[in-house]
């Protein structure tokens, strides 16, 4: 039986479509490592992994880094190498390309992608990735998670979003706010290490892969060009944001088309 037989409902050519598709994952930590694993299982043929970090020497990444081992901690293995090993152990036909430098140094890699996944902390960087992908009409799927202390308890929340050319952006969606950007800028761009847990990352990563599958395979009848799924980690729910109702009717004025398309220096 074909490995992908149980995915046959995705559509007649979906296996070939997935096999020829190019997915870029920025950030191979708790969220990105989950996404890499799932893209391998669904059979995405070309995966580009970008992350300059190694697994941390204290081993604190092991509680959430999918594919990470004690040996990796000893060796301080690059996160992109851990993800590559995991992906190719699932499907050796997948072409995996790794880049152990910041994403800003790999803009050519972004440009060649069909879809970009962003799984990093820091709103300034996420805003910049969104801007770089919209410039080349590449759908950007972002996941983010946060833990807040509320009185004596903790509140775990997060979201998975899809931002596309000509559609409402992450500022429109309220994921990126100017006051938070200013706060981050005051800290010289240091977003700080955000607390993360493997099960919440798993929910958000699955949501992100679900958005990707709706975009590239024809199984869902009416996929939305803009999506915001809100995760409530205390209630264990993932809900379509109520903001989408009005977002569907508004046009984004944070990006000016067509001026902000392509390479601005080409004349």
């Amino acid at each position: 039986m074909d490995k992908h037989n149980r995915q046959s409902f995705l559509g007649p050519n979906s296996e070939a479509t997935l096999r020829s598709s190019r997915a870029v994952i920025i950030g191979l930590g708790g969220g990105g490592s989950h996404i890499g694993q799932q893209l391998a299982h669904v059979g995405v043929g070309n995966i580009f992994l970008i992350d300059p970090d190694t697994i941390d020497r204290e081993g604190t990444n092991l509680n959430r880094l999918i594919g990470g081992t004690e040996k990796d901690v000893e060796d301080e293995t690059l996160k992109v190498e851990i993800a590559k090993r995991l992906i190719q152990s699932i499907d050796s036909r997948i072409q995996v390309h790794t880049f152990d430098t910041p994403w800003q140094e790999n803009l050519q890699v972004l440009r060649g992608g069909d879809v970009v996944f962003g799984c990093i902390d820091g709103l300034m960087q996420r805003r910049d990735i969104e801007s770089a992908t919209r410039r080349y009409m590449i759908p950007y799927i972002d996941i983010g998670m946060d833990v807040h202390k509320v009185d004596s308890h903790y509140s775990v929340s997060g979201q998975a979003s899809l931002s596309m050319h000509g559609q409402p952006c992450m500022k429109c969606m309220g994921i990126i706010r100017d006051d938070q950007l200013a706060h981050e800028a005051a800290l010289y761009g240091a977003a700080g290490e955000r607390p993360q847990v493997v099960w919440s990352n798993g929910v958000l990563a699955s949501a992100a892969v679900g958005l990707f599958m709706q975009l590239v395979t024809p199984w869902a009848s009416h996929p939305k060009p803009v999506t915001l799924l809100e995760f409530d980690g205390n209630r264990q729910t993932l809900t379509e944001s109520r903001k989408l109702k009005y977002l569907g009717q508004m046009s984004c004025d944070h990006y000016a088309y067509p001026i902000e398309l392509g390479d601005p220096f080409l004349k």
Binding site: S20, D114, V115, M137, P139, M164, P223
Partner: peptide
């Protein structure tokens, strides 16, 4: 060729 929207359409020359 990529048709950008939901869903996407990819037309590729192998």
């Amino acid at each position: 060729f990529t048709v950008v929207g939901a869903p996407m359409q990819f037309i590729r020359t192998e």
